[in-house]
Write a protein that binds this DNA or RNA. Structure first.
Lengths: 181, 181
DNA sequence: CTATTCGTACAAAAAATATTGAACAAAGAA
DNA sequence: TTCTTTGTTCAATATTTTTTGTACGAATAG
């Protein structure tokens, strides 16, 4: 076979990959990731070995500092792991390729953050709202409005308690029980 | 009680609300919503009746066209409903205040979109990859690489089949069974 | 130890996104 | 019907986010 044909095949495989990488980036866009992070995850997903910043830079055709930022965000959302060993001084990063685990890590992380932010806000607000309602000199209309807000908070609190359980279940792998592995 | 005191109470309640609205906007930021959409949802969450674009504009202190865009994105992610009736020519919008329902609608919508995008990409890629592997004149090394990619796709496909079931369960309310309502 | 290379932080530049005001079609009051 | 008002779109502007180049501390090879 000619060198040209070999090249064509390799290009065909890379073309197929490129479409898939774009789809991955597009879905990650949905959850607030930058397009570049999404592409980078896609590249790392198909790469069959850990990558260095230099390789990312080369494949993404971007600056090393940007790769540093992008890979950090992937590590933070736990879709990529920084390995303990290095290769010729260079740090190594490997994508988690099991989407079940990605789902588990990504969503438990995001949802936990949401729970923490909202629970704190609710915990801060409730005593103040309660005091406003209880004060002798609070106008009736005002009390009524404050009470409505308080009830909304109590419902929200119930929800976040449930969501915490949901996240715990997710972390425990309870949703994956029927999965053939 | 003096008018000043009444004013102070109302301001206190609005201050408490403002913190909560900010927390809501912050958590919505996490999932790729714009900060303004998040704030708008927060405002609508506390408002005890449907709102018009003019009211949103007034409360958000922003242009009407921007409110039109913001509320549209909230309707699309199903956190806000456009009512059938109008008030004095103006369309009415109401926030879904039950976070359980918001969770259900928001995530089933996003995840379904992810499934559709990825399943399409996978379905498009698989036959091409398969053909590349099967072709007589494909170089061994190339075949090996294509095969690795194909296996990754098959795993991904398994995942998205599971995710589709997960979304179906979410839509059916299966995750809310233990919830006190 | 010294020299080299790596990864990150920072400020500047580039790109993408959000916001606005104006124009206009559609809805509906008069 | 005609006149008013609403909601949306579009192009422009403003703002935010992403990306880059550079500088520098930390790690490590020699």
């Amino acid at each position: 076979m000619s060198g040209n044909e070999e090249l064509a095949q390799s290009e065909e495989r890379l073309r197929i990959r490129k479409n898939l990488i774009e789809a991955i980036a597009e879905t990650m866009d949905l959850y607030g990731a930058t397009h570049s992070s999404g592409q980078l995850y896609g590249i790392m997903f198909f790469e069959n070995r850990p990558m260095t910043l230099d390789e990312m830079k080369r494949q993404m055709n971007m600056s090393k500092s940007n790769m540093s930022y992008a890979v950090r965000s992937l590590v933070e959302s736990q879709m990529v792991k920084k390995l303990d060993e290095k290769l010729e001084r260079k740090e190594l990063y490997a994508a988690e390729t099991d989407f079940f685990i990605v789902f588990q890590k990504f969503f438990s992380h995001k949802l936990q953050r949401e729970i923490d932010v909202m629970m704190k806000a609710i915990d801060d607000a409730q005593p103040n709202l309660t005091e406003l309602i209880l004060q002798e000199h609070t106008a009736d209309e005002e009390r009524k409005l404050a009470l409505q807000d308080l009830h909304k908070l109590r419902h929200a609190q119930k929800y976040y308690e449930w969501l915490q359980q949901f996240v715990d279940s997710l972390r425990n792998g309870e949703f994956f029980t029927n999965k053939a592995e």
